[in-house]
Amino acid sequence: MLRAGIVGLPNVGKSTLFNALVANAKATAANFPFCTIEPNVGVVAVPDERLEVLAKISNSAEIIPTRVEFVDIAGLVKGASQGEGLGNQFLANIREVDAIVHVVRCFENDDIIHVSGSVDPIRDIEVINLELALADLAQVEKRLDRARKQARGNKELQVEVDALEKVLPILNEGQPARQVELTEEEEAALKPLGLLTYKPIIYAANVSEDDLATGNAWVEQVRELAAKENAQVVVVSAQVESELIELPPEERQDFLESLGVTEGGLQSLIRATYELLGLRTYFTTGPKETRAWTIKAGMLAPQAAGVIHTDFERGFIRAETVAYQDLVATGSMAAAKEKGLVRSEGKDYTVQEGDVMLFRFNV
């Protein structure tokens, strides 16, 4: 399961957001820095309306959505790359995730202390990004010296040297490594380093209840900065989300509509995180269950089958495949077959988003 780490300065709403994400999480949300020390981990379902539709077609007894793991990482502060505020421990936690959700405070509240004394999302983002870049810089400099020496007797290591030399000047400027264009070989060479600033990022602009529908001037600032980084922005309200989970399910939609929105920001955040990680969904459906399966974009049919069980990949024969839209339009698998919409795909087939699949394999 792929993991997204929730990061940000202390008291920006990370733990409150995390609690709302997993609903049952036990993360402590309190009004002082370093409330979260050990990272809390929660697994959340990726919302997908297609599951309900397929389950009705197949009369499924159970629906199983795909999931993403979120890690609530303690608040970073200026100097974290030098160990300030338990920074080394927190940076190590970030290194273990696949993507970063950077929570940025975009609300005013005198009752919630800001570590810098005022609300300034751009300053806050730059503090975090600089600390991550400094941590990466130290790692890249150390590795580059060694790689240059090793490359003298091993030309294959020259790819890593080239990649490190591309990344170094960007990090020296305090900018994220993801701004550098790397070849696939260079990316593979740098992967073992787990560079913090090369991880894909989403900025979660945390606003007050009143600004959830429209955003505010701070949100616009975050959007401008994110556009320069080619990053995404999702507007959320930790306050609203914490209230939502206290309401009965039947009352939640009315509450959201009273705020001028159709869904909570967390739904958008979960979807955006899923897409950010380059993930795709295919489905299996039948009387027993309708289930969403997670694959990487570009996976071939045997690899997709292997997500269910390694035996499926080893003994793969073919995949009976129908597009979600075609199955819904015809109303049943039998009707889709009659119209020639169910295809028999072989080992070279690239699985598409929303494919409904049945694998044939030898044991």
Score class of each variant (00 low, 15 high):
356 V>W: 00
318 R>I: 02
320 E>S: 14
354 G>H: 01
315 G>W: 02
313 E>Q: 09
319 A>Q: 03
349 Y>F: 07
321 T>I: 09
336 A>V: 06
357 M>G: 08
332 S>N: 07
339 K>F: 00
322 V>L: 04
344 S>V: 12
347 K>F: 09
343 R>D: 12
347 K>R: 15
320 E>T: 07
351 V>K: 14
321 T>C: 14
314 R>F: 01
315 G>E: 02
329 A>V: 01
356 V>F: 03
339 K>S: 08
323 A>W: 02
327 L>F: 07
359 F>R: 08
355 D>C: 09
357 M>A: 11
319 A>G: 06
344 S>R: 01
336 A>Q: 13
326 D>G: 08
339 K>C: 10
338 E>P: 11
324 Y>E: 04
343 R>I: 06
329 A>T: 03
349 Y>T: 04
344 S>P: 05
354 G>V: 08
354 G>P: 01
323 A>D: 06
335 A>D: 09
329 A>M: 10
352 Q>Y: 00
339 K>M: 13
354 G>M: 05
357 M>F: 11
337 K>T: 10
333 M>H: 07
351 V>M: 13
323 A>G: 07
334 A>Q: 03
340 G>W: 07
335 A>K: 14
356 V>Q: 02
358 L>I: 10
349 Y>Q: 09
348 D>S: 11
355 D>M: 08
351 V>L: 13
323 A>F: 04
319 A>W: 03
315 G>N: 03
325 Q>T: 14
359 F>M: 11
358 L>M: 10
355 D>V: 08
336 A>W: 13
345 E>R: 15
322 V>P: 10
330 T>N: 13
345 E>G: 05
329 A>Y: 10
353 E>Y: 03
342 V>H: 14
353 E>G: 05
329 A>H: 09
315 G>D: 01
320 E>L: 04
313 E>H: 00
325 Q>L: 12
321 T>V: 15
352 Q>S: 05
318 R>H: 01
320 E>D: 15
335 A>E: 14
348 D>R: 11
317 I>S: 03
336 A>Y: 10
329 A>F: 10
342 V>K: 15
338 E>G: 04
330 T>Q: 14
334 A>H: 12
334 A>S: 05
330 T>G: 03
317 I>H: 04
316 F>P: 00
326 D>W: 10
349 Y>V: 05
347 K>Q: 14
344 S>H: 06
332 S>M: 06
341 L>D: 01
341 L>C: 14
353 E>I: 03
325 Q>P: 13
328 V>N: 09
339 K>Y: 00
359 F>H: 07
353 E>R: 06
341 L>M: 13
323 A>V: 04
323 A>H: 11
328 V>T: 08
348 D>F: 10
351 V>G: 10
349 Y>R: 04
319 A>K: 05
341 L>W: 00
350 T>Q: 15
313 E>F: 01
323 A>L: 12
335 A>H: 07
336 A>L: 14
329 A>S: 15
334 A>L: 01
352 Q>K: 08
328 V>L: 10
357 M>I: 09
330 T>V: 07
344 S>D: 11
315 G>F: 03
331 G>Q: 05
343 R>Q: 13
348 D>V: 05
353 E>A: 07
345 E>T: 05
325 Q>I: 12
314 R>L: 02
356 V>S: 05
348 D>E: 15
357 M>L: 15
330 T>F: 09
329 A>Q: 12
359 F>A: 08
350 T>P: 06
352 Q>W: 00
345 E>Q: 15
337 K>D: 06
352 Q>G: 01
316 F>N: 01
345 E>P: 00
344 S>M: 06
353 E>T: 02
341 L>Q: 08
